[in-house]
Computed example of a mutant assay.
Amino acid sequence: MRIPFNRYESGREEHGNVADVLEAEDLNQVVQLEDEFASYVGVEYALATSHGTSALHLAMLALDLKRGDKVVCSVNAHPSLPEVVRHFDAEPIFIDIEPQSYNINLDSLETYLEDNQSKKLKAVIVTHVGGLSVDLERLYSIAKIYNVKIVEDASEALGATCNGKKIGSTGADITCFNFSSHLKKNICNGGMLVTNDDEIMERAKLLRNHAIERDEDSLEYIYDVVDIGNNYSMSELEAAYIRAQIKKQDKNIQRQQEIASMYAKALEGTPHITLPDMSNDEHPFSLYIIKVDKNRDSFALELKKVGIECGLHYIPLHLLTYYKAKYSLKINNFPKALQSYQQVLSIPIYGSMSDKEVKYVCDKIKQIAKTRV
């Protein structure tokens, strides 16, 4: 049996939406997606982009990030986060993690902000690893005290909630989504930037298409350029497909939570394996991250041999060649992230997994765990 790390399945609605675009019957899919997404999340504005990284880059543009500015993020994040910051010749600042959730450690964040107050400190980007959020009320309180913007990376938190509100509507200045996130590649790309801030959305809309302005009362080919933007636009075909996918997301999360419970029950007490905390009812389990205390990579290779693909979320940023050299970072600078990195392993979990596939994964994990010494 082969169990991929992720699987996307298309149904009638995806095919129907795409066919409408190909037959030129409905060329307003992007606008419809933006309206539907804003309603789904419960936010005032949603702006579709070509990719999740585009949404993050556009967010930095909307915040008017400049050379020498500083943006704080978790050291346990996808490289796209510090990458978009560096494209502005700004400086990413890394913070260690909370070892149970793998998210940014709010105590460490607050300590850094207290010790490094500066007008150059523009924003904090917070990643919700596996879709599980940090204590958002505390995060927003910290941001208010130290006058920094909060940008949430919700690449793994589509449809996730915190205190009953969907991520994206809980109080961040900007939230960015990715419809083809790291190791969970979709058959199309796409991202979304959401906000309740009129000025941020106005600027993001302008910059999404080369900062081009047109006079609606003039000829269509007459335009002006009023700033430096780029092309971050999503295609109609991508929007058509994603629209149908969004409608299934709540059901997918419900199934992921069922699978997480199945994993927890079947793998309880397995030697050398630590399971994630199941106490938070709102955890969407976009990722199911276990810890392997005996040679994680060897364990993953054994799973691969029996057809089970795994993931890693993430390689800490301070271990990557560019950031290690650029900022003279040492391997022990972020001990909690380092310790977690040496053990964490993401195993398959997604809405279309069958009970048979879940049982197969559990059986093989238990079988391999017995061979660890």
Rank of each mutant, 00 (worst) to 15 (best):
R7I: 09
R12T: 02
N17P: 00
V43M: 08
E44D: 10
A46I: 04
L47W: 11
L47C: 08
A48Y: 07
T53C: 04
S54D: 15
L58G: 08
L58V: 07
A62S: 15
L63P: 07
K66C: 06
D69S: 06
V75F: 04
A77N: 05
P82L: 06
E83A: 10
D89K: 10
A90F: 10
Y102R: 07
L106N: 06
L106T: 04
D107P: 01
L113Q: 14
V124N: 13
T127K: 14
T127Q: 13
T127D: 07
G131K: 01
L132Q: 11
L136H: 09
R138A: 03
K144G: 03
I150M: 03
V151N: 04
G159D: 12
G168R: 05
C176V: 15
G191M: 15
D197W: 03
E199A: 10
E199P: 00
R208N: 11
I212P: 00
R214A: 01
D215I: 01
E216D: 11
D217F: 09
I222N: 11
I222F: 07
Y223V: 08
D224A: 09
D224L: 05
D224T: 13
D227W: 13
G229L: 09
G229H: 12
Y232Q: 09
I246N: 05
N252H: 15
I259H: 01
A260Y: 02
G269Q: 04
P271N: 11
T274G: 01
T274L: 12
D277H: 08
D277I: 10
E282R: 02
E282V: 03
H283P: 01
Y288T: 06
I289D: 11
K291I: 00
V292T: 08
K294S: 08
K294E: 14
R296A: 05
F299M: 10
V306M: 09
E309R: 10
L319I: 13
Y323P: 01
A325H: 06
K326G: 00
K326W: 00
N332V: 01
P335F: 08
A337S: 15
S346C: 14
I347H: 09
Y350S: 03
Y350R: 02
V358L: 03
Y360K: 08
Y360H: 12
I368Y: 10
K370N: 10
K370Y: 08
